[in-house]
C-alpha cells in the first residue's frame, strides 16, 4: 500500500528553489534512505513529506486518500532537533508523549522500551543535562512507543555511538517487519544502505534517482557524494 505519494512537489523559500518537482512514493513495510550532500533539500523534503511545510506546487497524497489532511497522528517525525522539553526529566518527557498516544502514563511497554534503550537508569535526570547522543536516543525511543504508520527520521543517528546506532538500526528493521514505512535522511551511507529497501539521491532539490537497493551500490552513492559535495553535516 502507498502510504505517502509526492506528485510534482516543488518548494520555494523566498524565491530560492528547495525542491524541484519531486515524485516519490513511500510504501508500507519499506525503508527509504534519502542521501544527498548538504543543502540538497533533504530536510525540506522530510518536512514537506510530514506536512510541516506546505509545497509551493504539487500534491501529497497520504494513505491513498487525497481528501485526508489530518494525518499527523499517524506519522512520527524526528527532525534535526529532538522535540523534547529540556526542563523536564527523561521519564516526565517520555511519560507525557506516551500518555498522548496511549492515554496511560506508566505502561509496561514504556518501562520495557526505556530499559532496552538504557534510559531507565537515567529516568530522573533533567533532559538538559543529557549528552546529545542520549537526547537523540530518548527522542527515537519516544517514536518507538507510538504506533504510527510512517516514521520520518532526519539524521536519526546524529550523536549516537556505535553500540546505540546498531541498536537503533535493529529497532528500525523491526518497524519495517511490522509493516511500517520508514524514511531516513542520513549522511551515513553504509548504515542507510544496510537499512534501506529503496534509495533516493537528492541534489539541489532534484532527485537524481530513486532505485531499489539491488539497482545501486554503496560505491555509487559514495561516488555521487564525491561528485556533488560534502556528506558530513
Amino acid at each position: 500500500m502507498n502510504y505517502i505519494q509526492l506528485r510534482g512537489v516543488r518548494k520555494e523559500y523566498h524565491g530560492n528553489l528547495a525542491l524541484a518537482g519531486i515524485d516519490l512514493t513511500v510504501r508500507a513495510g519499506e525503508v527509504m534512505a534519502v542521501f544527498g550532500p548538504n543543502g540538497a533539500g533533504k530536510t525540506t523534503l522530510m518536512k514537506t513529506m510530514a506536512g510541516i511545510t506546505s509545497p509551493t506546487e504539487g500534491k501529497i497524497v497520504y494513505f491513498g486518500d487525497s481528501s485526508r489532511d489530518d494525518v499527523r497522528k499517524e506519522i512520527f517525525f524526528l527532525g534535526h532537533k529532538n522535540s523534547l522539553y529540556n526542563g523536564l526529566t527523561v521519564l516526565e518527557n517520555i511519560s507525557f508523549f506516551y500518555r498522548l498516544f496511549s492515554g496511560d502514563r506508566n505502561g509496561d511497554a514504556l518501562r520495557r522500551v526505556m530499559k532496552e534503550q538504557g534510559l531507565w537508569e537515567r529516568r530522573n535526570d533533567p533532559v538538559r543535562e543529557l549528552s546529545q547522543g542520549t537526547k537523540r536516543r530518548l527522542a527515537i525511543t519516544r517514536g518507538l512507543l507510538t504506533d504510527c504508520k510512517v516514521y520520518i527520521l532526519d539524521e536519526p543517528f546524529t550523536g549516537l555511538d556505535v553500540k546505540w546506532r546498531g541498536s537503533m538500526i535493529s529497532r528500525i528493521k523491526g518497524l519495517k517487519g511490522d509493516g511500517k514505512a520508514v524514511v531516513i535522511a542520513t549522511h551515513l551511507v553504509e548504515e542507510g544502505f544496510d537499512l534501506a529497501d529503496v534509495i533516493a539521491f537528492l541534489h539541489r532539490g532534484r532527485l537524481l534517482f530513486v532505485r531499489e537497493k539491488r539497482e545501486t551500490t554503496v560505491e555509487e552513492i559514495n561516488r555521487l557524494f564525491d561528485m556533488y559535495g560534502e556528506r558530513v553535516p
Partner: peptide, 15 residues
C-alpha cells in the same frame, strides 16, 4: 518553551 528544541512537534505529531 514549545519552540525550544521544536518540542511542540512532538504534540503536533500525536493524536
Amino acid at each position: 518553551a514549545e519552540k525550544d528544541d521544536e518540542a511542540y512537534l512532538g504534540i503536533i505529531f500525536s493524536p
